[in-house]
């Protein structure tokens, strides 16, 4: 009886100590797991901040490149910046996710980068252009894409650069794409580009009013422009465009 009681007690003590050890191990494991979770969270936060910094540096690189192109053109001023802002406003009005994709804005800003390859004598020729000169200018979208070829983060932006002179009716360049074949961002860009061209001063004519520009763009719906884009453009109140003009230093 006593012997068996002792044995039982010893067994119980042994089990208790094993249980205690298992408990400690389990606590240690839980703490270790928590440490992993903490590190994961911190790594995620650091990675997110890093991503934001990377995006900012992409944006400033694109802006620098776009400014380099603009610096040559005194009369267009902040054309690329305004067109980009107009384009984003129109894209938002379409309810399209384009506006959330940073490569859309990159493409808007860089659309004319290929013009660096067009000689001053052609680009700034006061009189009418010869066929050959027109051909030289018409190369700028393709040259633009060639310049940007190696920059992977530009993604879809290159499609805007290539196709920003296509027309809805297929008579544009360089590829003569028609309708939905033209990337949506390039179709949106076309409207924004015309809007800015009409509403800023040029050497040969003063700026037109926004109302006039709206009429011109609406009249070219279905020929030069995608009717869906023109409709969305029509829904944007004047105030939105005025705000962009104010921010980019154009008299409203």
């Amino acid at each position: 009886m006593t012997t068996s009681g002792d044995t039982l007690e010893a067994r119980l003590a042994q089990l208790e100590s094993e249980l205690e050890r298992a408990r400690k191990e389990s606590d240690a494991q839980a703490q270790q797991l928590e440490r992993y979770a903490t590190d994961l969270r911190e790594t995620f936060k650091a990675e997110r901040a890093q991503r934001a910094r990377l995006q900012e540096s992409y944006m400033s690189t694109v802006r620098a490149l776009s400014n380099a192109v603009e610096a040559r053109d005194s009369y267009t001023g902040k054309h690329a910046e305004r067109v980009a802002a107009y384009g984003l406003v129109i894209a938002k009005a379409m309810g399209s996710r384009l506006a959330d994709d940073p490569t859309t804005e990159f493409g808007f800003l860089l659309h004319d980068v290929g013009k660096v390859a067009v000689p001053d004598a052609v680009l700034y020729k006061p009189g009418p252009l010869t066929d050959e000169e027109r051909e030289i200018i018409a190369r700028h979208p393709v040259i633009g894409v060639q310049i940007l070829r190696g920059i992977e983060f530009l993604g879809e932006a290159k499609n805007v650069v290539r196709h920003h002179h296509e027309r809805w009716d297929g008579t544009g360049y360089p590829d003569g794409l028609e309708g939905d074949e033209i990337p949506l961002a390039a179709r949106v860009f076309a409207v924004a580009d015309t809007l800015d061209a009409l509403t800023t001063d040029r050497p040969y004519r003063p700026a037109a009013t926004l109302t006039y520009a709206r009429d011109v763009i609406t009249a070219a719906s279905g020929t030069q422009f995608d009717p869906k884009v023109v409709a969305a453009f029509g829904d944007v109140p004047d105030a939105e465009f005025d705000r962009v003009r104010l921010e980019t230093g154009v008299r409203a």
């Binding site: 240690a28 703490q31 270790q32 928590e34 440490r35 992993y36 590190d39 911190e42 790594t43």
Partner: peptide
């Protein structure tokens, strides 16, 4: 250290 350890990681250690 006396036994010849070069570095320490205190448990629970940080995976980073």
């Amino acid at each position: 250290r006396a036994a010849g350890a070069d570095e320490f990681l205190t448990k629970p250690f940080s995976p980073l």
